[in-house]
Design a protein around this nucleic acid. Structure first.
Ligand code: ZN
Ligand code: ZN
Ligand code: ZN
Ligand code: ZN
Lengths: 144, 144
DNA sequence: ATAGTTATTGTATATTATATCACTATTAAA
DNA sequence: TTTAATAGTGATATAATATACAATAACTAT
């Protein structure tokens, strides 16, 4: 069940302008989290007049629409590794993004129990969550 | 064994210099997450020649020694609401920081089940966690 | 067509964080 | 005592990240 091959569902109902599409392709094509100004450099190969706001506006749109995740711990952006599952099958699911502080590798894990635990906590607090991404830094298997 | 468990957290053994102590007091005394340059403004009331590196150095030290948490989603810092409990009673415990996007209120919750779930996940992945703080944004009870 | 609205773009600037180097204090050998 | 290593500080400059605000374009409803 490769996510990468199933692009049709992800793109339904989205207004992917040229800038947004280009930024999405850049981040999706990268194998590491991409920083805004790295994206800008790549984007300027395609859209020479692109400026920082061009990138940030596209990123805002793509994150809001769940095609990308922002990795706060790194000020970076990654393509959602399971966009359909996260938001179609289990809207309340929590994802956890693991970042290796040694090699920078990113792994996105969706976890049912975690989702339930977070649902319990937020319910008990009366807190309406709008962010389903939790971040964990450490050292990955390969680097330890 | 995670990195955090190897870290002794107590006020003993800390080298709280004037700058570090002042920054700690500023963040501890604030009722909201404090940003670096807000801290700088306050710090300059006490140490007029303080500059950005003064603040960032103190923050690095205080975060490393678990007296403060960095809230990545806001580029801000909060006093650890229970640093002894976090690292003495339950070294593997995961804390969750909830941030209200409306009023900015911060709540730090430690949760045993969450801790176990994360321990399972990281064990399965062979991932050595060094950050036990997960962030969740949304709207708090009062604001909803 | 035209006024009102929303969406997008352009320019400039604001905010956040680090690099560097010189200096001081403290401690640990030599 | 001298020397060397470690840790912290002060000051300047600049890098890296992000947004404010004004202008224009596109779209909608009379
Ligand atoms: Zn995802
Ligand atoms: Zn790694
Ligand atoms: Zn804490
Ligand atoms: Zn609130």
């Amino acid at each position: 069940m490769s996510v990468a091959t199933e692009t049709k569902v992800s793109l339904e109902g989205l207004n992917l302008t040229a800038s947004r599409r280009a930024v999405l392709d850049i981040v999706k094509g990268a194998k590491k989290p991409m920083k805004a100004y790295d994206i800008l450099s790549d984007l300027q190969q395609v859209i020479p007049h692109a400026k920082p706001p061009t990138v940030y506006r596209a990123l805002d749109y793509l994150v809001t629409n769940h095609l990308l995740h922002r990795v706060n711990a790194q000020n970076a952006f990654v393509y959602c590794q399971h966009h359909e599952k996260c938001f179609h099958d289990h809207p309340e699911r929590f994802n956890v993004i693991f970042t290796c502080i040694t090699c920078g590798a990113i792994t996105e894990q969706a976890h049912h129990v975690m989702s339930n635990v977070m649902a319990e906590m937020t319910k008990a607090m009366g807190f309406m969550s709008d962010s389903h991404i939790l971040e964990c830094t450490g050292v990955c298997k390969e680097c330890s």
